[in-house]
Amino acid sequence: MLNISGLNNGVVIDHIKAGEALNLYDYLDLDRYPGCIAIIKNAKSSKMGRKDIIKIEGTPEDIDLNMLAVVSESATINIIRGGILEEKKSPVLPEVIKDIFKCKNPRCITSIEQELPHIFTLTDKKTRTYRCRYCEQAFKVN
């Protein structure tokens, strides 16, 4: 088995559905994070069979980890401090998501004005429904 050394301080995004880590890397815009990041694909998991993991060294304060609730429902967040697990978090759906998804309504103003940001506001937590800020088209996240 491949060994990746443990984190002393950082964040481990665990239980990512196998094959989704690279998408998450893009969604979270981790490319602009200056610290060390390890992506582990297809790790063995008793719960999921196979899973992906992302380890981020340091404190990624500018990264909105709640976005995980939108793009990867199964993902969990482990905060590591001084080499020990300090906190386990489940991401909560953010009130607003920006430029993660595009509005699919062909009648929406964003369909002709490409420079507009695609902004969705959470309207129903239970059904995980967002609505486009402009045309109010409903959009359910998985």
Binding site: N105, C108, I109, I112, L116, C132, R133, Y134, C135, E136
Partner: peptide
């Protein structure tokens, strides 16, 4: 008035 939805909001 605009044929695209959300234009007045923009």
């Amino acid at each position: 008035r605009h044929p695209k939805e959300g234009a007045p909001m923009v």
